[in-house]
């Protein structure tokens, strides 16, 4: 890693080691995401992808035992999840949790105010919310439903992207955003993400399957196996994976740290 990359990267992960209840899951992960870039992190189940996602966002159960994570040059280790969100980090959850009795509109308003550190006028917020929901093919009634309660798989993922759109992060981590989606829902979600892409946003797409990458084109692809990134490359790596499977890629191990 050069200093230049380190200073320019919005998200900088350096030799990150993470343990849950004393058991190390990530054994030294390096990754740099600059603004304007889309990175895909692929890997089989249990390889540590979601552990990385939760750790980045600051889940209290994941303990950083080595290395560090920088967001715009600032070490995240001591920051709680809400502080990370305020600094421009976003995680689209693989399994968004339900919060019964809390309407989407109330939740989103508090979230937007929290992240921006100021109260957005109600009218302005409403307009923004309705416009964004329209882009994601969400009915207006959606805003009055309780957060993730009784949502279908597709509705949950759309709701995650809705939040991403409203919170306007600098770095977004999408954890298995494609899981549980049929092809139509996948297209809607991918279109939603694509609309948000641009020079001010860095994205890390975590996925098990290559399918999502047909719709969200990554600039870089990384393969994680057993808590390490074993291969990194361009978008063609995803196709190679599709053809050879993770076993094939893992077989070419040892080249993990080469770029």
């Amino acid at each position: 890693m050069t200093t230049e990359v380190a200073t320019k990267a919005a998200l900088m992960i350096e030799d990150l080691r993470v343990a849950i209840e004393g058991k190390e899951i990530l054994h030294g992960v390096d990754l740099a995401v600059r603004k304007g870039e889309v990175h895909a992190l692929m890997g089989p189940n249990g390889s540590g992808k979601s552990t990385l996602a939760s750790t980045l966002m600051g889940h209290p159960r994941y303990e950083i035992t080595g290395g560090r994570v920088l967001l715009n040059g600032e070490d995240l280790a001591e920051l709680s999840a809400d502080e990370r969100a305020k600094k421009g980090l976003f995680l689209a959850f693989q399994y968004p949790v339900a919060v019964p009795g809390v309407t989407m509109v109330n939740f989103l308003r508090l979230a937007v105010n929290g992240v921006r550190g100021q109260d957005v006028p109600v009218a302005q917020f409403r307009k923004q919310l309705l416009e964004t929901m329209k882009l994601l093919s969400m009915d207006e009634s959606f805003a009055r439903r309780y957060v993730n309660e009784g949502f279908s798989g597709g509705e949950k993922k759309r709701a995650e992207i809705l939040q991403m759109a409203l919170l306007k992060p600098q770095v977004a981590v999408l954890d298995e955003t494609d899981s549980g989606l049929d092809i139509d829902a996948l297209k809607i979600v991918a279109n939603g993400v694509n609309r948000l892409l641009g020079p001010d946003l860095g994205v890390l797409v975590i996925t098990h399957y290559q399918r999502l990458l047909n719709y969200i084109q990554p600039h870089f692809v990384h393969v994680m196996v057993d808590g390490r990134i074993v291969r990194s490359g361009g978008s063609e790596l995803a196709l190679e994976l599709e053809a050879e499977g993770y076993d094939g890629i893992a077989g070419k191990n040892g080249s993990g740290k080469e770029q």
């Binding site: 019964p100 009795g101 979230a111």
Partner: peptide, 24 residues
């Protein structure tokens, strides 16, 4: 964790969960 990841402090998140719980 979910609510905090959206910029709500721990207090705000807990309060929101409680308010939801008593919403009926």
């Amino acid at each position: 964790f979910y609510l905090m990841s959206r910029g709500l402090s721990e207090n705000e998140a807990t309060t929101m969960i409680i308010n939801g719980f008593i919403e009926p």
